[in-house]
Design a protein around this nucleic acid. Sequence first.
DNA 1: CGGTATCCAGATGGATACTG
DNA 2: CAGTATCCATCTGGATACCG
Lengths: 143, 143
Amino acid sequence: MSAHDVRTVRTNVRANVRTVPGPCAHWNDQDADFIREILDLVGDKWSVLIIGTLESGPIRYSDLADAIPGISQRMLTLTLKQLRRNGIVTRTTYPEVPPRVEYALTELGASLLATVLALAAWSADHHAEILRHQTSFDSATAT
Amino acid sequence: MSAHDVRTVRTNVRANVRTVPGPCAHWNDQDADFIREILDLVGDKWSVLIIGTLESGPIRYSDLADAIPGISQRMLTLTLKQLRRNGIVTRTTYPEVPPRVEYALTELGASLLATVLALAAWSADHHAEILRHQTSFDSATAT
DNA sequence: CGGTATCCAGATGGATACTG
DNA sequence: CAGTATCCATCTGGATACCG
């Protein structure tokens, strides 16, 4: 059923991009570009973690830092800037003392989160199978 | 409709992992792990390109290299090894002269390809919107 | 043909110190 | 509080040469 859902979505891409709908679409060069684009967006170390943390609603910079263990200030700032540049998050400054800055998901960001969770779904579904392959491959290689 | 499909899949993850189904699931720490896992799988520069090229059926090493412009022998070999390790592709050697080696997608690989195409779908759908955000952000930053 | 091995440049990201 | 600036280690991947 998961496979069926994905196929539905997949047909939609092509319908939008080249108006070639149908049940049996195939990989083409355009796909490569789109994949590169989304990997640039979320393929780094922290983007999806931040997006996921923002699901609960607007959150302050420091709370974000606390919610994402291991992230450095530098990477938090840098990644947030990229996400803002791509319209995934918004930054709102409240002129108070001490200053307060809140980050929130845009609609675009929310839809990206949903897509990313589909990825997590696949990963969860096949986690065990992948692990089995890894260990069998490693033991075969070791000998 | 795309959003609905994704939500369906998303609910399934949780059902499998923590048996907490329902219409309104939320991001949790498990998701982070699964995201890391799949990003390790396809977050690099060449994996998805290779997977996409393999959709058409089994293909020789050298034909694969020709089909993916810009890839070095080193990265082709390295990436193929990772994909084999994770059970995404198989390698078959034919003891002929000259030697022939064919790579093919496994079932797991095919389902991964479908999932990745869902990502491409999102990217295609929102490509224009992202571009608009980027240019407006850049011009706002430049001044 | 189908790789390996070595070397090296550039990108990524962590640690630390400092600032409005 | 919410960053910025600098320095540095590691990782990724390209070029090239060589091998079974």
